[in-house]
Design a protein around this nucleic acid. Structure first.
Length: 290
DNA sequence: AGCCAGGGTCTGC
DNA sequence: GCAGACCATGGC
């Protein structure tokens, strides 16, 4: 990977010629809730209590105001820059429907988020919509996270969260999901659940392990494992994916796709929610007649 | 104004 | 094992 450092900026001048990455498709597709869109093809967010500033200009990928150390420790793993998406897309494209979904948004990448943050985020996601999840995560960080730049907050630590209660959580307006966050914090803080073990566990074992936490069922567990647990084979099934699978993959994904089922899932999720091809799958009920 | 949202728990068969 | 009520809240 060619890397050019100048002042406080890091540029990957040829990355996008070799590998797919679209910032909007990746940072604003419902897998992560911590990046804001700036002017231009430019996003700012927080990873590991560090401000990450990423921009694409003239088909070159830039990380602003960073260091080589941060790039290696945080950025490279977070964006999973060493994974060969080109090769994965080629494999998945053997299936015509997957090929269409990939062609529709080829720049989606699955991020490697922090497990604790991913766990909380997808507890907040329960029976909720993406817009409101973002608001809840924002308020949670603002209330209980460390301020790392002006009006920019780190995700609350496990330790801090374990000191909270329903009353203190109320400004977050998470509704019934409050109690799940508190239970998760208690179990992680006490060591009953060790999130750093997830990536080494077989998928099924990790799924069961996470479901010790109240509020974690199959869907939330799979989201944590896919987006923050190093399991690209985890396949979260939400209402959208269930619809898509019934209509597009009645016999399930092809076998060769299974090691990357979660990555395929992201393409399908985005495709069914936003592509004109799939409008017929998004039909609302008839408005009540007057 | 209702319906729905990147679901899970709890109860009752 | 499985269906159905219920959960808080706000976007559309």
């Amino acid at each position: 990977m060619e890397i050019v450092i100048s002042k406080n900026d890091i540029c990957l001048p040829t990355f996008l010629e070799e590998q797919p990455l679209n910032l909007k498709e990746t940072l604003d597709c419902g897998q992560c809730f911590r990046f804001s869109e700036m002017e231009g093809n430019h996003y700012q967010g927080v990873v590991q209590a560090t401000l990450i500033d990423v921009e694409i200009m003239e088909n070159k990928l830039y990380f602003h105001n960073t260091t080589m150390q941060e790039f290696e420790d945080i950025i490279r793993p977070y964006f999973d820059l060493d994974r060969d998406y080109q090769g994965i897309q080629k494999l998945l494209s053997r299936n015509p429907t997957l090929r269409k979904a990939i062609a529709y948004a080829p720049g989606i990448r699955v991020l490697c988020q922090e497990p604790w943050e991913t766990l909380c985020t997808f507890l907040f996601s329960q029976n909720n919509n993406i817009k409101r999840i973002t608001g809840i995560v924002d308020r949670f960080c603002q209330e209980f996270g460390e301020e790392i730049a002006e009006n920019l907050y780190a995700f609350p630590t496990v330790e801090k969260t374990s000191t909270l209660n329903r009353e203190k959580m109320s400004p977050v307006r998470a509704g019934f999901r409050e109690k799940y966050i508190l239970d998760a914090a208690e179990k992680v803080e006490s060591g009953q659940v060790n999130l750093s073990l997830l990536s080494q566990m077989p998928l099924e074992e990790a799924q069961e392990y996470l479901q010790q936490i109240s509020g974690v069922g199959p869907k939330v567990a799979d989201c944590v494992l896919l987006f923050g647990g190093g399991h690209p084979d985890a396949f979260p099934k939400d209402v959208w994916i269930n619809r898509a699978m019934a209509a597009l993959f009645p016999k399930g994904l092809p076998k060769y796709a299974l090691p990357y089922a979660g990555i395929a899932q992201q393409y399908i999720f985005h495709y069914i929610r936003t592509s004109p091809d799939c409008e017929y799958l998004r039909i609302k009920k008839e408005p009540t007649k007057k």
